[in-house]
Amino acid sequence: MTQNAKISLALVFLVILGGITFFSLESGPASSEVAENPELVRADSHMLSTAEDDRVNLVEFLDFECEACLAQFPTMERIREEYAGRINFAIRYFPLPGHSNSENAAKAVEAASKQGAFEEMYVKMYETQGEWGESQDSKADLFVEFARELGLDERQFLNDVNDPKTAERVAKDQADGNALGVQGTPTIFLNGEELPSLPSYEMLSEKIDALLEEK
């Protein structure tokens, strides 16, 4: 081997080695916290559908600014409609650090939920994602406008958005997600099992039907 090739290879190995060392030293979830006893669904988790029994538990970790989540949204709406009242379907916040308004959007939805408008704001966020997603500027004002359009009390909404408890509530969902190994969004769990990325309606309904027919 020529010296040229030797040195090049040595450099590559050096960087890989350095990377691995650095990685193992620092590894561990980035976003601040990991829940100690992670739960897929908590008492305060927002449910899009609630069943009388516990046969089917669908949980989606999502980010309102994520395009893949938007792509998944119609499927999840169809599932929600089709299985309303027959399955438990929980939404968990998992704002991703790469998006500028993920956190703002999650807080806006949480604040709306305080006035009983979780569902409406959840739908609104995805319907309007094209208008505000991928922007580098804060869209908090636009979200207040959404609240107004939904007929929410604006002052109350603003209070709730700015309440540190709202941010904590979002962070708590995220900590559960981190602990459960959620890496991106949407991540969907069906009865505790993580589904492959972006499951189709057919795949979801097939699995849910099978679970509903059991016993």
Binding site: L11, V15, F23, E26, G28, P29, A30, S31, G98, Q183
Partner: peptide, 19 residues
């Protein structure tokens, strides 16, 4: 490698979340 290192640094928080 310089680009690789820049990528590693820029998205460090994200890579760290991977198990």
């Amino acid at each position: 490698l310089a680009v690789v290192l820049l990528i590693a640094e820029a998205f460090w928080d994200y890579w760290r979340t991977l198990p």
